[in-house]
Amino acid sequence: MLLIMNKIQPSQLTEEQRNASRLFNQLHEEIHTMVCIGNPTMHDVKKAMEKVLALDKAYPLPLLGVMLEKFPKTVEPAVWWPPHQEKRQAKAHSGRKINNRNGWDAKLEEEMREIVGVLKRKDEEDYLRLGEKFLKLNKVLAISGPLLTGLAAIGSAFVGSPSHGSWAVVLGVVGGALSTVVNAFEHGGQVGMVFEMYRSNAGFFKLMEESIESNLEEEVERRENGEIFDMKVALQLGRSLSELKDLATSSSIKGEAMQEFASKLF
């Protein structure tokens, strides 16, 4: 039973499916909003299908056989979005003249580049570092738990034996006590869930980085409106617009970038 529990990692599995449920609900609201606005195109349908398939691949519903690797060799951010996003199409506007800069200027572009740098150096790197520590801890606990339980079972089997009586009692008692502590810490402490939480949070920051970089790579008129995008980034990081500008300013000063994380939410 311990081997099966440690292989499946129920707490980690629960966190995976909880994240999947949240992301599917978010995608559902995006599609519902698009339909309510009206006139969705085949491009919108294709884009939504790519998101659904990417999310299903990131968090597969058939849990056994195709479930995610619980003890990966390397810790990487969770990825639940399409890897190759098509260039956004220029929207047709009529009835009013649009600013050629689309809400963007050189200062805002530099600000976004600095924020991407902070996300990579601090937030994403820190969550991956913590995730790696918890992964190693989980591996040790997953191996030592069944091993100690097996030694305790072997020791209890030899209790009463004339030649191994004293050692069998010590092995049974010590092994049983240690296995109880290890198994209680692993599953009671939800170590697998904590690892998955760190991996998922690192994925959130990676998605933000890719979103900002893809906007900066686009032609100005095809980008998302700069003022709206600036506000969206600030909200995702739990900051006001002034705090976001202060973060970008401090990150450009040597030695200041390593003092503060980009996100204030988690």
Rank of each mutant, 00 (worst) to 15 (best):
M42N: 13
L61M: 13
K87Q: 11
T41N: 09
H43R: 14
W81P: 02
H43P: 00
F24L: 11
T33S: 12
V45W: 13
Y59M: 06
F71K: 10
Q17E: 07
R22L: 10
P62T: 03
W81D: 10
H32I: 07
V66F: 08
E29C: 07
E69K: 11
E50A: 15
I31S: 00
T74Y: 02
K51G: 01
Q17S: 04
Q85E: 14
Q89E: 13
K73N: 14
V66G: 06
K46G: 13
A92L: 12
A48T: 10
K46W: 11
G38K: 05
P62H: 08
A92K: 13
H93A: 13
F71P: 02
Q17H: 11
K73S: 15
R18H: 03
P77C: 12
Q26Y: 08
E69S: 10
I37L: 11
H32S: 15
P83N: 01
M42E: 14
V66N: 12
H32G: 08
G38L: 05
T74N: 05
V75T: 11
Q17V: 04
M34Q: 06
K91H: 06
R22M: 07
G65R: 01
K47T: 15
K91R: 12
G65E: 06
K47I: 07
T74E: 11
V45P: 00
A90G: 12
K46C: 14
P83F: 00
P77Y: 06
T41W: 07
A90T: 10
Q85R: 14
I37H: 11
A48P: 02
N25D: 14
V66P: 02
K46Q: 15
Q17W: 03
V75R: 02
P82S: 10
E76I: 15
P83E: 03
K47D: 15
I31A: 00
P72C: 09
H43K: 14
V79F: 03
T41I: 08
G65F: 03
Q85K: 14
E29K: 13
P62I: 04
E86N: 04
V35G: 04
K70F: 01
N39A: 13
E69C: 11
A90W: 04
A58T: 02
V45G: 01
K91W: 02
E86C: 03
P40F: 08
V45A: 13
M34S: 13
H84M: 08
V75M: 15
Q89I: 13
H93E: 14
T41C: 08
K87I: 07
K87G: 09
P77H: 05
G65I: 00
S21D: 12
I31D: 00
F24E: 05
Q17A: 02
V52K: 07
L55V: 09
I37Q: 14
H28W: 09
K70P: 00
V79T: 06
R88E: 04
M67E: 03
F71N: 05
G38E: 06
K91N: 06
K70A: 04
L55R: 00
H84I: 13
A58K: 00
N19D: 03
Q85C: 09
P72E: 10
L64K: 05
H93D: 06
L55D: 02
D56G: 04
N25E: 12
C36W: 09
P40S: 07
N39D: 14
